[in-house]
Amino acid sequence: MRTIDWVNGAVEIIDQTALPGEERILRLHTVGELIAAIQSLAVRGAPALGVAGAFGVALASRVHLDDPAALDLAVQRIETARPTAVNLARGARRAAALIPHGPEAVLAEARAVRDEEIAASAAMARLGADLVAELCGEERPRLLTHCNTGGLAAVTVGTALGVVGELHRRGRLAGVIASETRPLLQGARLTSWELTRWGVEHRVAVDSAGPFLMARGEVDAVILGADRICANGDVINKIGTYSHALGAHRAGIPFLVVAPESTVDRDTPSGTDVEIEDRGSAEVTAWSEAVNPAFDITPYDLVTAIVTDRRVIRVDRGEKP
């Protein structure tokens, strides 16, 4: 099942805000509808956002075929709909480069972005499962994951959750703890939904329980995704990632990041150079002002390895992206 695709002249997505209660398909016909879906998190996850950005430019190229100024503005709006994940702007710019060749060329490039992310998920699943087996030995590991990194975030299969699925298929997985991922509960709602569909044994834990469960010996490795990986190896990912990295470091267990090459940003030196999106108080509380960063920065020296669709980067051995 593709969780985002181009179907009969529109972008179709699984509405992630409706899960797990309802499996609802949204058809997005305009740039405004696509941007609203991105900003409301109806579509989210770095690879899926890259595809959404490319398909958004395909929509814009058809609507504004004879108005270059309006088309440029639409592309800019798509690129900046969310600031932190590098894939969104990259997908939009890649499709926009084909605008001089016409709408069909733009759509073909957007479909190529989609197909490459699908292939990347399959490759990451294999490489990541091999690495987990290497690091955890013959024992079937108990893994902790954070946020959602399955097909919902990556068109099909997923990044870190794709590795979980591959280990399950190999019979090499003891179980999963899914961190609930406050404040919007992507782990409790989305990851649990996907793991249930795959038949993977799992439990949901509150975010703050993760480091304690590691300290108590209930987790053998942490595996999660990334919205951006900086040139020095710093990882930008869902808020709460840094806490899990600290817990894994203290417990002496692997901390693994799984993300496609399209998420590696060699133009950004370190995490301090990344704009961290704050999503405002309403997602957290209605009674007071709140600080609500959507992402945090995990320093590279807390990362054991980064798995992309092309390679395994052993950060713990001094390797850089």
Rank of each mutant, 00 (worst) to 15 (best):
M1V: 12
D5P: 09
G9C: 08
G9T: 02
G9V: 05
E12Q: 11
T17H: 08
T17M: 13
A18E: 13
P20H: 01
R27M: 08
V31G: 01
G32N: 15
G32E: 15
E33A: 13
A36W: 06
A42Y: 03
V43Q: 05
R44S: 11
A46N: 04
G53I: 01
V57L: 08
A58F: 09
L59H: 10
L59M: 08
H64W: 15
H64K: 11
D66L: 10
D67P: 05
P68Q: 00
L73S: 15
A74T: 13
A81M: 01
T84K: 00
G91P: 08
A92R: 04
R94K: 15
A95S: 11
L98R: 15
I99Q: 07
E104Y: 02
A108I: 06
E109N: 09
V113R: 09
D115P: 14
A119S: 14
A119D: 13
A122F: 06
A125G: 14
R126C: 03
E134C: 10
L135F: 04
R142Q: 12
G150D: 09
L152E: 03
G158M: 07
T159P: 14
T159V: 05
L161I: 14
G162K: 01
E166G: 14
E166A: 15
L167M: 04
H168N: 13
R169C: 08
G175R: 01
G175E: 03
V176R: 00
I177E: 12
P183V: 02
L185F: 14
Q186F: 04
A188I: 00
L190N: 07
L190S: 07
W193A: 10
L195W: 06
G199M: 08
R203I: 07
V204H: 01
D207M: 06
A209D: 08
P211E: 01
F212P: 00
M214Q: 03
A215E: 13
R216E: 15
A221G: 11
A221C: 13
V222I: 12
L224F: 07
G225A: 02
A226E: 07
D227M: 06
D227P: 14
A231G: 07
D234G: 09
K238N: 01
K238A: 01
T241F: 01
H244K: 13
A245W: 04
L246K: 02
A248R: 04
G252K: 10
G252W: 09
G252I: 03
F255Q: 09
P260T: 02
S262P: 05
T263L: 06
V264P: 02
T272S: 15
D273G: 02
I276C: 01
E277I: 02
A282I: 13
V284A: 08
D296P: 13
T298F: 00
Y300Q: 11
D301K: 04
T304M: 04
I306A: 11
R317S: 12
G318A: 06
E319D: 14
P321A: 02
P321F: 09
